[in-house]
Design a protein around this nucleic acid. Structure first.
Lengths: 150, 150
DNA sequence: CGATATTCGTTAGTGGCCCTAACGTTAGAC
DNA sequence: GTCTAACGTTAGGGCCACTAACGAATATCG
């Protein structure tokens, strides 16, 4: 009657699992598309944050994007290697680096913006606009601390 | 007007990101609670699958839970170390191992079931029953291939 | 002023999970 | 009886969350 055919019933009934799996499917598509453009999601996050608020220190970028302070170094390195960003010491506060968007970085951001917009439509293709909005509303209520970094 | 205070606007507007972040918050709670019980989510997944369908091969467990064939080895090892599961060669098919739930494993599963039920209530505390159901419905429609394993 | 706490960038490292590639062994299909 | 496919297993890469510690610079406050 119940040989292992599909997925376990009990697992299917965990809302947390449904959430995890949906996120995984979504992330997979996002990562694939970004990889196709030679980027990762953190690259986009940093570029977007810089575009919105101008030059910023790495710590500020960390707070704006949710990337850990310890991981931001590599991201900025990669962006700097691609000349999408420039890192220079802050004369006003010698602890800090000022990270600045380059022209190439701004162009890249436009591309990624477009790309991500189309990814949204792809991932949520089976949802109406209203459903999509409702999903966002519901997701915002999903618990757990938003806290990052002690 | 717009120094980096909170989170970037553009990031906030990506539904895929809202989904990722909600899943991360949810997963964090789930993992914490399970870790408190000395388990991980794959442990629960395997125990649940075994309970529902009786003894199974590792490949079957892989299909039922979504765990990769290459990762299941370790999970079964850990469960066997804790005596929650027994692994023995299948006499009928000498390629396979038969994984069987022990009495201790069944007891553990009951505990984890209870624990996870309470985690659901914790994570989705701010959602009504109806909203929770709707969330599940919406999540099911989130795109990307469900495909695992080539 | 001077001691203390805090912030910043950075390095190093852990562990989880997803995923690929390859292997020898064994069973099924033609 | 050969070829194909499934099985368990090992090894490894990649991304990400997360911790701990460091020297250096700044902010705070007595």
């Amino acid at each position: 009657m119940c040989k292992l055919a599909g997925v376990s019933e009990r697992l299917e009934n965990l809302t947390t699992r449904a959430l995890s799996m949906a996120a995984m499917r979504s992330d997979r598509v996002v990562n694939e598309r970004l990889a196709g453009a030679g980027s990762r999601k953190w690259h986009y996050a940093v570029l977007a944050a810089l575009d919105e608020s101008g030059p910023a220190s790495q710590a500020e970028l960390s707070r704006a994007t949710g990337i850990y302070r310890s991981d931001i170094v590599a991201v900025v390195n990669e962006l700097a290697d691609r000349a999408l960003v420039e890192r220079s010491p802050d004369p006003a506060d010698r602890r800090r680096n000022v990270v600045t968007l380059t022209a190439a970085g701004r162009r890249k951001l436009v591309k990624l913006d477009l790309l991500l917009r189309s990814v949204q439509d792809e991932v949520f293709a089976e949802l109406t606009r209203a459903e999509r909005d409702q999903l966002v509303t519901l997701l915002a209520k999903v618990g757990g601390p938003d806290s990052r970094e002690h």
